[in-house]
Structures are given as structure tokens and as C-alpha cells.
Design a protein around this nucleic acid. Structure first.
Lengths: 229, 229
DNA sequence: TATGCTTATAGTCAATTGTACCACAAGTAC
DNA sequence: GTACTTGTGGTACAATTGACTATAAGCATA
């Protein structure tokens, strides 16, 4: 085996699927590779793990180096380790997925990328290695998780309207939901703080803004409550 | 780094949490280590990945070598990769979990183990490395999965009674369930084939035996059906 | 000022599902 | 027979879901 970087565990990489929600669409952040292999192709941001860092730390460092993003919701997903998934040598990758509100960060391609941008998950470019499979898997994971854990809020600004929340769910789950029922369900779970603030700059009646109450969620969860959409 | 086996990817191991169900108890299969480190301690069966095998293949091979078991339900769970989790060198492990019916196999400790047996998940011995954390995580994963996927059947014999199935769920979920309601729910999903056979050798009215219909499940799943307990 | 458009928000009601029971049947042990 | 255990069917009520209706609020345009 070639140990190109003696400080890196080089049969083992990390790849991050970063989800964003914008204009009613679920998006994935990709970088254009400025290094071999697959130079010039759009791909998931990724890198190698250092000997002196935990894998969760590694995923955060890699994301920061590749995109400039920090302190966002990240979770380990799955290892992908088919023999021929990477060219010339054996690399097993740990797939992570992250949730972020796209407007919050200015995109910033790191030294290993020549470009960076958001893609609608439904219209992805051609991807190298098994990155398409990884993204598909991440989308499925997200679809499952979002129904039983209140993680969707990570994709929205701190203050949001109920319609924004509903559109988020519709984009992720790929189906229309009934408006009055969705509102009631969300409000009925006692996880939203109703603010005395309203939308501005809209050409119709302004909707009330809400905040997600993480503290209350943890308390409810302790006592057996399960989030369900 | 020391490459003790040039054919093994040695910063990367696999550990398997094998669940069984017996006498109304959820159990985990552990081996007593016959090799260093932690020689003599009860631990999860595990091993290293070869350069020429997929990780899912590796998990099956390792399980076969350590326990003699083959062709059982196995799924990847999570990577565990804290810096100090393994002594002296960095090893990241891929945790797998497997489901099996304990009576089906004669336990067979491999060359790296001096003993092998089932432990009640509630009363585990002292475990080396982060194996306790891995098992805890596996139990949680199982608890989640069993509610939304019909994987519990992997822990039962091919033909089973509804009470056995209920006791399985009670053991995994850790709560009592109402008998008539449970029966109705299970039968209502149209996933059980009611056989013309009954229990034998019991000191009370013999219960009807059922079989799980995997084919029907896949068909229903295609058309949007979701398994729910 | 009036009208129309869009979205917010509240309310209704039938159908379905979940839950906590009760009743009895079928078999074994004594 | 009686006592005991487990299987199996039923019922009544509460809670939830799902589809739909109605009205209010704000902006844009005439």
C-alpha cells in the first residue's frame, strides 16, 4: 500500500453529503475536484482521517477545509467498502450527512476544489466512485429520520413559518400534505414556540413566525414522547 | 504503523453484535478472547478486513470464523473511531449486527476464542475496548428497527405462535403489550401465513403456528405499505 | 375605495385506529 | 369434576387521521 501521507489513515476516507433547503427544493452541496483521481468532476466533499483525531472530529475538519462551514448538524451514516469503489487502491469510506440552511454560509471552495455549488437532489451531475449510491442512501436515511426525529429544523432559519416547514417536509418526503392538518399536528406536539413576529416583504397576509424548542423536545423525549410526522 | 498481516487492512476492524432470543430473553453472543489484547476477556467477535473482499463479505467471513454461523441476517450499523478506543495503535471498527435463532446453531468457538456463549443483554460481563458502547448502540438500533421493519422474525424459528412473537417484541421493546390487540395488529397486516399446525408438548391449549411471508411483505412494501408495531 | 388574488388560520365531521377491557373456549393437571 | 393456563373473539370508548369548508388578513391593481 502507498502511504502518501504518513499522518493519514489512508485506506479510510470520509465523504459528506450536505443537504440544504432552498426555494422549496432539497439540495446537495458538491465540489468540483481539483485533484486526481476524477479531477474536474463534481463530487462529494471528502478527505482522510488523521491518526490523532476521532472520526467525528475528522468529518468536521474535512467539511471546514472543503467548504468553510462549521458547527452544523452532522451524523454518521454508513461505511461504503466495495472492493472496486475507488481506483487503483482500496479505500473504504465513512459516509456522513449534514444538514444546513444554505443562506447561512458563503460558499468557499477549499484548496482541493475548483468550484462549489448546490444541486437539486433530483438533478445531479455525473458523479465519480460510488458517490451517487452514497447520496441515494443519504436521501433515504434523511427521509426516514425526518419522520421520527425533529431534525428538519436544521434546514430552516431559526425563525420560520408553518408553510415553510410544510414545504420542507413535502420536498423531503416527495408528497403533498394537507395544510390545516399539518399545522395542527405540528402545533399539537408542543415543540414550536409561537412568536409575536410576522413575515415581512410578502405580497399577501404575513404568516406568524415560529421557533423550534429543542429544550422542550429533550424533556418530552425523556418522558417517552416520540416525534412523528 | 505495524502491519502485522500485509493482506489485512489493519487500522480497520469489524465487530459483530449477534442477537438471539431464547426463553423470553434477548441475548448477545460473546466470545472469550484467546489472543491479545484483552486475552481472557469476554468480547464481541471481530476481526480485520482483507484487501480483496467487500466489507459485507468480511463481516460474514469473520462471523463464520469466530462462531461457525453462516447465512444469517446481518446489517451494518456504525463505525466507532474514537482515538483511544483500542490500545497502543489506532483501530477504527465497523460495527455490524446480526439476528439469529439460538437453537439453530451449535456454538463453535474459532481459533481466536477459548469459549463462546450467550449472555442476557441486561446482564453483560465486563467488556474490553468500547464494546459495551457498541452493544448499547446495537440494542437501540434494534429497538428502532424492529418497530418499522419486520426483522424480528429472524430471531424466531420458521414456525412460531403469536405469543412467541409477542414475547419477542416485549423483550426487545422492554414493555408489556396487550395480547388481543397485538394479535389483531399482526394478523391485520397480512404478513403472517396461518398454518394448519399447532404446538405440541405444551401443558395447555396448543396455539396455532404461523409463518412470516417475506414475499408478500416485499410486494406490500412496493405499494407503499409500512410495517408498524 | 373597491375588487380580486394569495395566503393564513379556524372549524367541522366521518372514518379509522388505538386501547383497555371482558368473555369464553380449549387444553392439561389433579 | 375443579383449578389453572393459554388461545381466541368481541365490544365500547377515546384519540387520531384525513378530507373538506369557511373566513380573515394583507397586498396589488384598477
Amino acid at each position: 500500500m502507498s502511504h502518501t501521507h504518513p499522518d493519514k489513515i489512508d485506506p479510510l476516507s470520509i465523504d459528506c453529503t450536505i443537504f440544504g433547503f432552498e426555494d422549496g427544493k432539497l439540495e446537495v452541496l458538491l465540489i468540483r475536484r481539483a485533484i486526481e483521481p476524477s479531477l474536474g468532476k463534481w463530487a462529494l466533499p471528502g478527505g482522510f482521517i488523521l491518526y490523532q483525531e476521532d472520526i467525528d472530529e475528522a468529518s468536521r475538519r474535512i467539511l471546514r477545509e472543503m467548504t468553510g462551514m462549521e458547527r452544523l448538524f452532522m451524523e454518521q451514516q454508513q461505511a461504503f467498502g466495495a472492493v472496486g469503489r475507488y481506483p487503483n487502491r482500496r479505500v473504504i469510506t465513512l459516509a456522513y450527512f449534514a444538514l444546513i440552511q444554505p443562506g447561512k454560509y458563503k460558499l468557499n471552495a477549499g484548496p482541493e476544489a475548483s468550484d462549489i455549488r448546490w444541486f437539486d437532489v433530483r438533478y445531479l451531475p455525473e458523479l465519480p466512485f460510488d458517490h451517487e449510491e452514497i447520496i441515494q442512501h443519504a436521501v433515504n436515511t434523511l427521509r426516514q429520520k425526518v419522520r421520527h426525529q425533529p431534525i428538519g429544523f436544521e434546514l430552516l432559519p431559526e425563525k420560520f413559518t408553518l408553510l415553510q416547514l410544510q414545504e420542507l417536509y413535502e420536498a423531503i418526503l416527495g408528497q403533498k400534505l394537507d395544510k390545516p392538518n399539518f399545522r395542527r399536528k405540528m402545533q399539537g406536539m408542543n415543540l414550536l414556540v409561537s412568536l409575536e413576529e410576522y413575515q415581512t416583504g410578502v405580497a399577501h397576509r404575513a404568516a406568524r413566525l415560529y421557533k423550534f424548542d429543542m429544550t422542550r423536545y429533550y424533556k418530552l423525549k425523556e418522558s417517552g414522547f416520540v416525534f412523528e410526522v
